[in-house]
C-alpha cells in the first residue's frame, strides 16, 4: 500500500465512522443536531471525494470537518465518547496535515505518528492492566461486570460470578494488547492481529455497547498497514 492509497482508505473509513456518529445525534436538540447534520453532509462529501480520488476537494472538506469537530468539542466541553472521539480527532488531524502538506516527508511523519498511536492504544492499555494486581487476578473484570456502568444489559452482570472465565479473559486481553506491537514482524501476522483487534472491538460493542470504537479504530488500520510496508526493511533489521 503506497501512502496515497493509505490516505484514501483512511478518508473512506473515517468518513463512514463520522457518518455513523452523526446519525446518532439526528434526534437531539436543534443546536446539537445542526452540528451533526453538518458533519454528516461533509463526511458524505469526503466519502465521495475519496472514492473518485478528488484530492483537492478532500483537502477542503477535511478542513471544514476539522473546524466542525472543534465546535463539537466546545459544545460538549470535551469528548462525547471518550477514546473513540480522541482517535477520530487524531485521524482527522493527521489527514488534514497530510493533505495540506506539500512535502512528502511531513505526510510520512503524520501517518507514522498515527500508526504509532494505534500501536500505543493497545500496548499502553495492556501495560497499565498488567501492572494492576486486580487485572492479573481477574478481579478488575469481575468488578467491571458486577457494578460498573458499562455492561449493556443486566443479564451480562451474571458473568461477574464466573471467576475462572474472567481470569482467562483478563489474561487474554492483557496479552493481546501487550503483544500487539510484535505483529509488525510480518505482514501476515499484522493482518491476523488487525482481524483479532477488529473482533475484539466487535466484542466490546456487544458487551459494553462501545460501537463507535469499531468504526474509528478501523479507520486507523490503513496507517499501520502502510507503516509496516514503508518500514519493513528497518523493522526486519530490528527483529532479526
Amino acid at each position: 500500500m503506497n501512502l496515497e492509497s493509505c490516505i484514501r482508505f483512511t478518508e473512506i473509513f473515517l468518513a463512514i465512522a463520522f457518518m455513523q456518529q452523526s446519525i446518532e445525534h439526528f434526534s437531539s436538540i436543534k443546536q446539537e443536531r445542526r452540528l451533526f447534520v453538518t458533519k454528516f453532509i461533509y463526511s458524505t462529501a469526503l466519502l465521495v471525494a475519496a472514492l473518485i480520488s478528488a484530492t483537492t476537494l478532500s483537502k477542503w472538506i477535511l478542513l471544514i470537518l476539522f473546524i466542525n469537530r472543534l465546535f463539537i468539542l466546545k459544545y460538549f466541553q470535551g469528548p462525547y465518547n471518550g477514546g473513540s472521539d480522541s482517535m477520530s480527532i487524531l485521524i482527522l488531524s493527521v489527514l488534514c496535515m497530510s493533505r495540506f502538506s506539500t512535502e512528502l516527508e511531513w505526510q510520512v511523519y503524520a501517518f507514522g505518528y498515527l500508526a504509532l498511536q494505534l500501536l500505543m492504544s493497545y500496548f499502553i492499555a495492556g501495560s497499565v492492566k498488567i501492572m494492576n494486581p486486580d487485572w492479573r487476578n481477574g478481579k478488575a473484570l469481575q468488578d467491571l461486570f458486577e457494578f460498573s456502568a458499562y455492561p449493556s444489559s443486566e443479564s451480562l452482570r451474571k458473568l461477574s460470578s464466573q471467576a475462572t472465565l474472567l481470569l482467562i479473559l483478563s489474561w487474554a486481553v492483557i496479552l493481546f494488547e501487550l503483544l500487539f506491537p510484535l505483529a509488525l514482524i510480518h505482514q501476515t501476522s499484522l493482518v491476523i492481529a488487525l482481524l483479532l483487534a477488529f473482533c475484539f472491538h466487535l466484542g466490546m460493542s456487544f458487551i459494553f455497547g462501545f460501537n463507535r470504537f469499531v468504526w474509528t479504530w478501523l479507520a486507523a488500520y490503513p496507517a499501520i498497514l502502510w507503516f509496516h510496508q514503508h518500514y519493513s526493511s528497518v523493522l526486519g533489521m530490528i527483529w532479526h
Binding site: H25, S153, F206, G209, N211
Partner: peptide, 29 residues
C-alpha cells in the same frame, strides 16, 4: 436503567446505531 437482556439482532443493530446508550455513557462521564 439498562434492559434485562439484549438479543443478538439488537446487538448487531447497535454496532451501527446506539444513540441512546452513547448518550447514557456521555451522561455517566
Amino acid at each position: 436503567p439498562r434492559s434485562q437482556s439484549v438479543s443478538v439482532i439488537e446487538s448487531i443493530k447497535n454496532i451501527f446505531y446506539n444513540a441512546y446508550w452513547n448518550e447514557y455513557l456521555y451522561l455517566i462521564n
